[in-house]
Simulated scan of single mutants.
Amino acid sequence: MRTVVIGGTGHIGTYLVPSLVRAGHETVVVSRGTSLPYRDDPLWDRVEMVTRDREAAEREGRFGTFVADLGPDAVVDLTCFTTAQAEQLVEALDGQHVVHTGSIWSYGPSTLVPTTEDAPKRPYGDYGIGKRSVEQYLMGQDRVRASVVHPGHISGPGWMPIGPAGNVDPAVIESLRAAGSCTLPDRGGETIHHVHAEDVAALHQACVEQPDDAAGESFNSVCTQALTLRGYAELLARHFGHEPRIDFVPWADFVDGLDPEQVALTEDHLGRSPMFSMDKARDLLGFVPRHSVTDTVLEAVDAWVASR
């Protein structure tokens, strides 16, 4: 089918776009033209690349009609963050299948774990609230068929993953690499739930290719297991050839002297302590992630170290 991917040169699109082409789909990528995919692939030569600044076109009220004029059978929207954006796109379409990228942040803090897609959603923060609002709109309208994919902490080669301290402080990785040591808050029992960008892409594609099963549904997109902070730190220490030396300190001591941006990230991740189920994607679409959580974080960390 003819598939338009909005924002197709980022983390997810790097894997999704060549895979769609490989599967025989006529693929169009809409992007600002300011970034390149993280991985080279000759199949990008068979992609129709269209440059358009989404935000500028939306301010003019023209982005939805621009996408509709591309003649898609399906639209994969990787860069929608507000209901107004979703409405402008959907109102210009007529019956197509829209696959939207949501977020596990739309749930709010985990309560029952592993959390399933029918769990109550009580998000906080602009990002999570916005993603939840878009999902509610898409599932309530009847102009297009819609599916929502909720990724966890997207990881892969090319960017720093969320680390064992629940942030992206490079000093944590460097210390574990050099000596197998790091400092964690409390006892390190909170969880963070990664997913490889390739698996997020594959689940989007599964939705595109199985619209009768995917339409009207939302799907978690995470590894089949989550990592505790402590387990993650120990994994990296041993990966770099050290016995782990982890110091556990009270929260006040942990944040003392830490960059406020890293503090906020840690609070955000530990406050939610996410752990999600992948059963629904398996049961409805036959989809199982290819990458384990350990392989996912080690690949990302190794690629980051190699780029230093």
Rank of each mutant, 00 (worst) to 15 (best):
A84R: 13
H269M: 12
V90E: 02
G158M: 09
R238V: 15
T224F: 01
V4H: 14
E135R: 02
L235N: 03
T266W: 00
E87R: 14
V208N: 05
G152D: 10
L138Y: 00
P37A: 02
S19Y: 09
T27K: 06
S103Y: 10
S133W: 03
H204W: 12
Q85W: 10
F276C: 08
A86S: 05
G128P: 01
G257W: 00
F254E: 10
V28G: 03
S155L: 05
H196E: 11
Y124R: 10
G125A: 07
G152R: 09
D279I: 10
Q141M: 04
P114S: 07
L203H: 13
T79L: 13
S218Y: 03
G140P: 00
D279N: 01
H193W: 12
L112H: 10
T14A: 07
P157K: 09
Y232L: 13
P250H: 07
L176H: 00
V168F: 10
L229K: 01
D295F: 06
R143A: 02
D142H: 03
G216L: 03
P161R: 03
W105T: 04
D118T: 14
G64L: 12
Q262I: 00
G163K: 00
T65N: 04
Q96V: 15
A300I: 11
P18C: 10
V113H: 09
P109I: 14
V98Y: 03
W159I: 01
T79G: 01
A197R: 14
Y137T: 00
V21G: 07
V195W: 14
W159M: 07
F240A: 12
G163T: 05
A165F: 01
G64M: 11
G231T: 06
I154E: 09
E243D: 15
I6P: 00
P161N: 03
G10I: 06
D247L: 12
I12V: 15
I246N: 12
L138P: 00
D45E: 12
G8Y: 12
E87V: 12
R132A: 14
G216V: 02
R46P: 04
M160V: 12
W159L: 01
T14R: 03
V5Q: 10
S106E: 15
D169I: 01
V297S: 05
A74M: 02
E58W: 04
V17E: 05
M49P: 06
V255M: 07
